[in-house]
């Protein structure tokens, strides 16, 4: 029944997953460019954002058509609404990768030492893991997987705080100070990518339970988080 409609839904979801894979590539590229101070790769990451945006627009247009023509209800409606949100989260993640690439190009030629590289490497791979889990749990309708993102995000938040502490230790050398300022934003971008992965988890939960709920509430932190 309604095979054209089901096909349209499948295409939307496949395109969303594809967009997610592109975000993973952008993230890996951005972290690598940052670590190796590779401007060429940074430029590639910036240009690559067009590929993500293309999927983003495809999905937006697809949803507009689907809503206008197929009047989805119940699970179908929730799926369409969740895809709409996840699409935006993925697009934002890709924008953060662009931010990291742009900052990579701006930092002076200083060697921050291995402690920094390690910190970003850790944050980068945690982000990667979170994106992968967010995409898989959405695709597999896996509530447990989606909920596990909260704890993973906690680890990124901690890594972010550690990186910021190291930045504070850099001291007053003007070159290092500029580097440090840029890197605070990089660290923040990675931390935000983690937040968006949690938001995707919340969309999975909405899809499965039909309830809107935030996994964590930033304005009312739980004791565990404090």
């Amino acid at each position: 029944m309604r095979s054209a409609f089901q096909q349209d839904l499948d295409i939307l979801e496949a395109t969303l997953q594809e967009e997610g894979q592109l975000v993973l590539r952008a993230l890996r590229g951005a972290i690598k460019a940052l670590e190796q101070r590779d401007e060429e790769l940074a430029d590639e990451v910036i240009a690559f954002d067009d590929d993500v945006d293309q999927r983003y627009v495809q999905i937006e247009e697809g949803i507009q058509l689907l809503l206008a023509r197929q009047t989805p209800v119940a699970t179908d409606l929730r799926l369409v609404l969740a895809i709409l949100h996840v699409n935006l989260h993925l697009e934002r993640m890709a924008d953060y990768c662009v931010t990291i690439a742009k900052l990579t190009k701006l930092v002076p030629e200083v060697d921050p030492g291995p402690r920094f590289v390690e910190g970003f490497e850790e944050m980068g791979s945690r982000c990667e893991e979170m994106i992968r889990i967010a995409l898989d749990s959405f695709g597999n309708r896996d509530l447990e997987g989606a909920e596990s993102l909260v704890e993973l995000d906690e680890l990124i938040d901690r890594a972010n705080r550690r990186v910021v502490e190291r930045i504070l230790e850099l001291g007053g050398d003007p070159e290092m100070r500029e580097y440090g300022l840029r890197m605070v934003i990089v660290s923040r971008a990675l931390e935000r990518i983690g937040d968006h992965a949690v938001d995707i988890g919340e969309q999975t939960a909405y899809l499965l339970t039909a309830e809107f709920r935030e996994f964590t509430d930033a304005s009312h932190p739980s004791p565990r988080k404090a």
């Binding site: 295409i11 594809e18 590539r25 590229g29 790769l41 590929d51």
Partner: peptide, 17 residues
């Protein structure tokens, strides 16, 4: 040597359709 991130476009189902 830079290892590029550009990927061959995955099957663009929607576009193909």
């Amino acid at each position: 040597m830079t290892e590029g991130i550009t990927m061959t476009p995955v099957i663009e189902v929607a576009q193909a359709r």
